[in-house]
Computed example of a mutant assay.
Amino acid sequence: MWDRQGNLWLVFDVDGTREAARQRALPQTPDRPAPQRRFRPLCAPDYTGRKREEIVRTRTTVLHMHTHQWVANFCNPGNGQYREELRRAKASIQT
């Protein structure tokens, strides 16, 4: 983007979202192996305002606004570590 003085600016959008993951009831019968949750390493228990005992994860995305290209995508369990994600977003923009 060019401003009035003729300077070139590159604009990036760093956006963080917090999303709940659905958990279905797992069947437990003697003829099946012990159930395992796929989202266990990706999500953490949290309260989203709707139902209790949900699991959530945060996702931070970096988008180059002029070309609409994704630069980076970071995910963390629970509320995430927003300062670490901002550092990673800055590093990915600089590269």
Rank of each mutant, 00 (worst) to 15 (best):
A21D: 03
L42V: 10
H66K: 15
R57Q: 09
I55L: 11
Q81E: 15
W2F: 12
E84I: 06
E54G: 10
P77Q: 04
N7W: 08
P35G: 02
V71D: 04
G49W: 02
N76P: 01
M1A: 06
G49V: 05
Q28P: 05
L26S: 05
Y82C: 11
L42T: 06
T95C: 07
H64Y: 10
A91Y: 04
M65C: 14
E84A: 13
G16F: 06
T29N: 07
E53A: 15
L8F: 11
A34E: 12
R40V: 08
R24A: 13
E54Y: 02
R50S: 13
A25M: 06
E19P: 01
A25L: 10
D3S: 00
C43K: 00
Y82R: 09
W2R: 14
Q69F: 06
F39A: 10
G78N: 04
C43N: 00
T95E: 12
T60P: 02
P41R: 01
P30F: 05
N73H: 11
R38E: 03
M65Q: 11
R88T: 04
R88I: 02
H68V: 12
N7K: 13
L86C: 08
D15R: 12
R40Q: 12
I93N: 03
E19F: 04
L26Y: 04
R59C: 12
Q23I: 04
D15W: 07
R37P: 05
T60R: 03
H66W: 14
V62Y: 04
Q36E: 10
G49L: 00
N73D: 14
W2P: 03
P35W: 01
R59H: 07
R24P: 01
E53G: 10
A25E: 14
E19Q: 09
D15E: 09
F74C: 02
F39R: 07
N73I: 13
A44K: 01
N79I: 10
H64I: 05
D46K: 03
D13N: 07
R52I: 03
A44F: 04
T48N: 15
Q5E: 14
Y47L: 06
W70S: 13
R57M: 10
H64N: 08
Y47H: 12
R22S: 10
C75E: 14
R24Q: 10
T17V: 09
A25H: 09
G6H: 03
D13M: 05
R83S: 12
G16E: 14
R40G: 02
D13S: 11
A21L: 08
V56M: 11
R50K: 14
P35M: 02
A21Y: 06
T48V: 13
S92T: 13
I93Q: 00
R52L: 09
R87C: 12
R22N: 09
P77L: 05
G78K: 04
S92M: 07
A21H: 03
W9M: 02
T61N: 03
